Simulated assay, not measured.
Amino acid sequence: MRMMRRFREPDIVPIQPARLPSWSPLHIEKRQHCCEHCPSLLDKKRKRKKKQRDRTLVAILVILLFCLLGNTVFLDVHTLRSTVAPPSDEAVTNTSTSVSSSALSAQAQQCLSQYIINAPSDPASYPCSTCYSVLQAVPSNFSDGNPQDPQQIENAIQFCGLRSIFDIASTSGQAGLSTGGG
């Protein structure tokens, strides 16, 4: 029996886990996005986007102002060039058959510049009643060094003739002329 006792298994007693004290809650809110808890980060991003947008708008505004300034300078130079006849060595050529005029009268220059600038954009504002007779009085052999001026004078005279037809036409006739007869 002694032997039997010796090989006998000891009584197994299960080990009980030690009781730990409960922890207090950490009070941490669940976060769905990184930036919800960082309002200062959102403000920085918004400010950065606003600065970029403002810079873009300022750049567009500066470009627009430069374009307007360039157009104004171009129109001033173009108007000045078309109203003031440049000095020419061949200003007055006397021949036995014809005399070539080198400068337009001030009124003819004004009518020509008004035609070049105003007639394409606002045809009704061009004063055909006064300019037609002034431009018709310019000699056909007029030459001031600018080869486009005689053609522009001819165009202005034709414009006034066509405008008088338009003004005389009835409203249905004017509508037909405005649409090209369609």
Rank of each mutant, 00 (worst) to 15 (best):
F7C: 05
R8M: 08
P14C: 03
P17C: 05
R19T: 14
R19W: 08
S24Y: 08
L26F: 11
H27M: 05
K30Q: 10
K30L: 11
C34S: 11
C35H: 07
C35F: 14
E36C: 05
C38H: 10
C38K: 04
L41F: 13
L41T: 03
K44F: 11
K45Q: 11
R46H: 05
K47A: 14
K50V: 06
K50A: 11
Q52V: 13
R53T: 10
D54Y: 03
D54N: 11
R55S: 05
R55T: 07
T56H: 06
V58Y: 10
V58D: 14
V62R: 01
L65I: 15
L65E: 00
L68M: 15
T72P: 02
T72D: 11
V73E: 04
L75C: 04
D76N: 14
H78W: 15
E90P: 03
T93I: 12
N94V: 09
S101I: 12
Q107D: 15
Q107R: 10
L112D: 01
Y115N: 01
I116D: 09
P120T: 14
S121N: 12
S125Y: 01
P127A: 08
T130K: 07
T130M: 08
L135D: 00
A137V: 04
V138S: 01
S143F: 12
D144K: 01
N146H: 04
N146V: 06
Q148R: 01
P150V: 00
E154T: 06
N155H: 09
A156P: 01
A156W: 08
G161E: 09
R163T: 05
F166L: 03
I168E: 15
S170N: 06
G173D: 02
L177Y: 13
T179P: 01
